[in-house]
């Protein structure tokens, strides 16, 4: 049966498209933080479902790569599962949920807790690549502002936050300055993750399919979150530790347990949590069971 059907080109995209995307990626790496326009293709999923990330991954993935896909830190949500399955089908690559085993990690809205190493590539899915978009709707103006390094408006937004909320209230998609030149939107990752982007050993690529832009942060690049001298950038802190593995200082998801308002806080990064539990760490949720077992 399958012999009669047309097969997919490796990683779904035709070779010419991959070349076009790779050229865009090279430009993006050469100019860290600069949004490179590219001819985004129609993918077999609608806009808003990660087509940008998928196209970047498709352009760089090879038969020896090991792919991990996460969505809000989890390997087991619908989107992560679907995209992973997609690449298994069209590229027949090995997949994993372990961060340290992956060569390419495609992510929606989170950076893994595990520190990335040289040779790994983190591919971000980006909805709106333009950090200034909500302040200045005109594309003609924002392009000029980037070209002429006119970023006063970005600080106006932060000023407004402080004036109205007493502090900078942007907690995700927090704007950063890359390599001291371009202001970039890190995609809707929580600001908690911003420091991980700075001087990473890994290559970070960003794809926005609907907006048709690719940008990049090469390894060992300065990524500095914008702030004011008297209102410096601060990441979120959590009072709790992970209820399952007891991890401290990681990004936690709040999970509602029942109708009476019971809730628990667990690692957003599922691989990190599993890994810790495998190594014997327990959180308070699991601790009573341990004691009972003992």
């Amino acid at each position: 049966m399958s012999a009669d059907l047309a097969t997919y080109n490796f990683a779904y995209l035709d070779e010419q498209t991959k070349r076009m995307i790779r050229r865009a990626i090279l430009k993006a790496i050469a100019i860290p933080g600069y949004q490179v326009p590219f001819a985004s293709r129609e993918m077999p999923m609608p806009y808003g479902w990660g087509t940008g990330g998928v196209q970047v991954t498709a352009a760089i993935i090879g038969p020896d790569d090991v792919l991990k896909v996460i969505d809000q830190g989890a390997d087991d949500t619908t989107n992560a599962v679907s995209i992973r399955a997609f690449f298994q089908k069209v590229a027949n690559v090995a997949v994993t949920t372990h961060t340290k085993d992956a060569t390419i990690i495609q992510t929606r809205h989170r950076i893994p807790e595990q520190k990335l190493t040289e040779g790994q590539v983190l591919v971000y899915q980006v909805p709106i690549p333009e950090p200034l978009r909500f302040l200045e709707p005109r594309e003609t103006e924002t392009r000029k502002m980037h070209a002429l390094e006119e970023y006063g408006l970005m600080h106006v937004k932060l000023y407004e936050d402080i004036a109205h909320n007493g502090r900078i209230s942007k907690t995700y998609a927090y704007p950063v300055k890359v390599d001291g030149r371009y202001v970039m939107d890190p995609s809707p990752t929580p600001k908690f993750d911003n420091p991980k982007m700075h001087m990473s050993d890994a290559l970070q690529l960003f794809g926005a399919g609907r907006e048709k832009r690719i940008y990049a942060v090469p390894p060992h690049t300065e990524v500095v979150s914008l702030d004011f001298e008297d209102h410096p950038f601060e990441i979120q802190t959590f009072e709790q530790d992970c209820a399952l593995c007891g991890a401290h200082g990681v990004y936690l998801d709040e999970v509602v347990l029942d109708d009476q308002g019971g809730r628990m806080f667990v690692c957003s990064d599922t691989d990190h949590c599993e890994d810790r539990r495998e190594h014997g760490h327990v959180g308070e949720m699991l601790a009573p069971n341990q004691e009972a077992a003992e």
Binding site: L135, E150, Y151, G152, L153, H155, V156, Y159, E160, I162, A163, H164, D227, F228, E229, D230, H231
Partner: peptide
């Protein structure tokens, strides 16, 4: 954008980074 931000924008555009002073 607020009146204060309107007046402060030019200052921020030329590199002022101290909220209180702006």
């Amino acid at each position: 954008v607020s009146a204060g931000a309107n007046v402060g924008e030019r200052l921020m555009a030329v590199g002022d980074r101290h909220y209180g002073k702006i």
